[in-house]
Design a binder for these strands. Structure first.
Length: 717
DNA sequence: GGGCCCGCAGGG
DNA sequence: CCCTGCGGGCCC
């Protein structure tokens, strides 16, 4: 497209194409968005003066449907939008804020589309009603594919958003609020909204007859992108971290390569040679799920992957083939996770048996190597690397170096991509098995029986599944291009209410979110819960000097309760994600209809009208060390232009009326409290939130003190 | 650099 | 619920 190379002038009036500063007469102002553009650098400047007066920039013609031809064809309303925007812009009776508000209403699809067209689009999306929630992306007018949410609470397709950002825009296309640099450079998918869209589509499909589809949801979206450390695990840092989000859509008993279709994040799959910082990161990409154990597998089913990490001295690594040692046989007393010393024989059970199953069946086994594999030439220098698919050609038992019996496995590489260490650019071909001297003294020898599941196809010239891969025993969904879900296995369908609770619960109060907020790091919370978490904290750290004067020192870092990101900027003016709220509420309505009317509502805030954000009571107190609250409820800011977030007025926090109670709520600080106190209170509230999560996910910890645990192990030993 | 020992995740 | 485990930060 011609205008792809077109860019406007930046905030300083510098043309982003030629980097020069055009004079007054050399720029054109867009009729729609009022941005200045350098005429000389336009690929298609207006030809007449009249055209220049009514000129509309390439971005706005893009918004109206220039870039997404398919979407525009389906909707066919591009020119209508532009005409309507122009009408708004030329209406002298409106303030800039009102204009922005009108523009936003227009862009969010309200009352503009003709019924026929609307029906057409709805059919294409397989969904009704959703447009009433104003959910569609303002750019392509479709339900957002991979939605991202701005701090001002507006949702877009990731692609559309990135395109917008790529054009140098740094304001929300809906309300013109600033987009934080961090989000511009690294927008995050709002996975709760993904689920919301899917659920809404699904419930609609089910309602319109036909057999109800079974869907499942990985309860994954509340996890942060990085491994994180709970308060409880804090002292040992990453050593005891919880897993971050799993980025791929394979179940953890998936065999074979991780393909592009299971990588919604990058659409490339896990490639040979890919390297991660540690086992947690490796796990997040599905190459090897266990974060300590070396073998991923189930004794009755097979083993999916192994890690070579130098944990067993019997291992012998030759790159394209290696000898692997089974697990067990070691004394783990003293609460250890590993031990160099063997103290009893290994058996073909548990993981060792799982590997033997994979051997018999000829399953593909993913292999990762760690830098900790010290005496191998093939180990990566740092981190953990995915080295591709191997098969276990034989396994047996023999006396290990330390004299105890160990299980042994001959792994031979069979991947279509070349190994990371070879300069050959071809993948593997079937190769003769190496001779293994130790086999003469081996017992319990097992070899593959029959045709290997994963084998080389001479005609196609590649390794592939010759038998269908074993069906996953874990339910998991995989996201399709269109946002729908492919079902892998059946499982009793959850009620709408159950799903609501599972997918849209606030990770602070654990109830379905009321007034959901989406942070720039794409985590969702109830507005009231998030606010309460930071009650008493100020945007700026304050210090009171002896004279009683307040000194502003530095910005207070306020970490997202779900990840380490600083969300203090966001907290200054958090905007409710009204679209997400709309979907939640519409599902709640359906749930109410479907189930008994008597079914009591477990969620709060349902009486709240979607677009009514609780008003705030302004605190006029100007006490010198008053704790100014950073959380500014915006009364007028439901849509339209918000005030610049840099001005922070001391305001008493008011609990949102529909708010849930949170586990620990600390009363507001006394006026003369010092900042250390603020920090402490914030931390403790946060800690409580995290702790509640810990309790939920790890119930057994309650009466299982570390000491008791050590004792158990020691007693056994 | 080696040993200690923790929380977490998953199998059974 | 109990057991296991080719991590990993920290202390010495």
């Amino acid at each position: 497209m011609a205008h792809d190379s077109d860019l406007p002038c930046d905030g300083d009036g510098i043309c982003m194409v030629c980097k020069g500063k055009p004079g007054d007469g050399e720029t054109l102002t867009c009729k729609t968005c009022v941005a200045p553009w350098h005429v000389a650098c336009l690929s298609a400047p207006p030809e007449t003066l009249a055209a220049a007066a009514q000129w509309e920039c390439p971005d706005c013609s893009f918004v109206a449907g220039g870039a997404n031809a398919a979407a525009t064809a389906a909707v066919g309303v591009g020119s209508e939008i532009v005409a309507a925007i122009r009408a708004i812009e030329s209406d002298g009776s409106l303030t800039e804020q009102e204009k922005a508000k009108r523009r936003q209403e227009l862009m969010s699809g309200g009352g503009r589309r003709g019924d026929d067209e609307k029906e057409k689009v709805e059919k294409a999306n397989g969904v009704l009603d959703l447009f009433d929630e104003g959910l569609n992306c303002s750019f392509c007018m479709q339900l957002p594919e991979r939605p991202v949410t701005t701090p001002c609470g507006h949702n877009f397709c990731l692609k559309c958003f990135e395109k917008w950002i790529g054009q140098g825009k740094r304001t929300c296309a809906n309300c013109r609020n600033a987009i934080p640099a961090k989000m511009a450079s690294n927008p995050r998918i709002n996975s709760a909204l993904v689920i919301a869209i899917r659920m809404a589509k699904m419930s609609k499909t089910n309602a319109s007859g036909g057999p109800p589809k079974e869907y499942h949801f990985v309860h994954n979206q509340n996890r942060p992108d990085k491994a994180y450390t709970t308060e409880r695990a804090k002292k040992a840092g990453k050593a005891n971290a919880c897993s971050g989000k799993i980025f791929v859509t394979v179940p953890n008993d998936h065999f074979g390569p991780i393909l592009a279709e299971n990588d919604p994040e990058r659409k490339q799959g896990v490639l040979v040679g890919e390297t991660w910082e540690g086992r947690m990161e490796c796990r997040q990409w599905g190459a090897h799920f266990p974060h300590v154990a070396g073998i991923a597998g189930q004794s009755e089913y097979g083993a999916q992957s192994v890690a070579l990490s130098g944990g067993y001295e019997d291992d012998e690594d030759h790159g394209e083939w290696f000898l692997y040692t089974g697990s067990g046989g070691r004394d783990l007393s003293g609460n250890k996770r590993t031990n160099k010393m063997h103290s009893f024989d290994q058996k073909f059970d548990k993981s060792n048996e799982a590997l033997r199953v994979s051997c018999r069946k000829g399953y593909p086994v993913r292999v990762v190597r760690s830098h900790k594999e010290k005496d191998s030439s093939y180990a990566p220098e740092t981190g953990v690397r995915y080295d591709g698919i191997y098969r276990i050609e034989k396994c047996w038992r023999k006396a290990g170096i330390q004299g105890f019996m160990v299980c042994r496995y001959l792994f031979v590489r069979c991947d279509n991509a070349p190994a990371p260490w070879t300069s050959d650019d071809n993948g593997d071909r079937p190769r003769p098995l190496p001779s293994i001297p130790e086999l003469k003294n081996a017992t319990d020898i097992t070899e593959r029986k029959g045709v290997a599941s994963w084998d080389y196809d001479e005609e196609k010239g590649c390794w592939m599944w010759k038998k269908p891969p074993p069906e996953s025993r874990k339910p998991i969904d995989s996201v399709q291009e269109d946002g729908t879900t492919k079902v892998r296995r059946h499982r009793p369908a959850l009620s709408i209410q159950e799903r609501l609770l599972k997918e849209f619960s606030c990770s602070i109060c654990r109830k379905v979110m009321s007034l959901p907020l989406t942070t720039p790091c794409a985590h969702n919370f109830c507005k009231s819960c998030l606010e309460s978490s930071f009650a008493g904290q100020t945007f700026m750290k304050q210090r009171t000097c002896e004279g009683g004067r307040t000194l502003r020192t530095q910005k207070n870092i306020m970490k997202c309760p779900s990840c380490p990101n600083d969300i203090s900027d966001f907290l200054q003016n958090p905007q409710v994600n009204r679209e997400l709220m709309g979907v939640i509420e519409s599902l709640q309505r359906q749930s109410k209809q479907t189930e008994d009317d008597e079914a009591s509502e477990e969620t709060d805030g349902t009486d709240e009208k979607p677009d009514v954000v609780p008003d705030v009571v302004s605190d006029d107190a100007e006490l010198c060390s008053e704790t100014s609250d950073i959380l500014k409820e915006d009364a007028e800011g439901k849509e339209g232009i918000q005030k610049s977030p840099t001005k922070i007025k001391p305001q008493e926090q008011k609990k949102a009326s529909g708010g849930d109670s949170i586990p620990t709520e600390k009363p507001l600080e006394k006026p003369d409290s010092v900042d250390d106190e603020h920090e402490k209170s914030g931390k403790e509230t946060k800690k409580a939130a995290v702790d509640s999560k810990v309790k939920r996910t790890n119930k057994r910890k309650a009466d299982d003190s570390p000491g008791a645990r050590v004792k158990t192990r020691k007693q056994k030993a």
